[in-house]
Nucleic acid binder design. Sequence first.
DNA 1: TGTTTGACCACGG
DNA 2: GCCGTGGCCAAAC
Length: 109
Amino acid sequence: MADESYFDLVYEVVRHVPYGRVTTYGAIADYLALGSARMVGWALNQCSSGDGVPAHRVVNRLGELSGRHHFNPPSLMQHLLEHEGIKIEEDKVRDFKQLFWHPQELDLE
DNA sequence: TGTTTGACCACGG
DNA sequence: GCCGTGGCCAAAC
């Protein structure tokens, strides 16, 4: 715990994602102002290591469930999002722009 | 120990 | 509006 890896920072941000909202890799990377969106993907790749990290709320900038294949089962990601009231169309978030949430909004919240 | 890939994004042509 | 390239950091081979 003493060592705050980049992964931990990503987990923290993802964990702060409000219910029924989604964020993107770039938004997290931009908020952390560290590494890059690729690292965010790597961090979530170890989502199994993370505890209670709603990785299903993290999608690419297009709102596509790019990482759904990394879930178990893959349809779990879509299922969780729909469970939160988020409509998924063609493995993409409907009204993604509206549901898009930026970590920076935490200060505004 | 160096190369390749990875749940990506932004910019330029 | 689509395609190619660079960048970023870390783990796996």
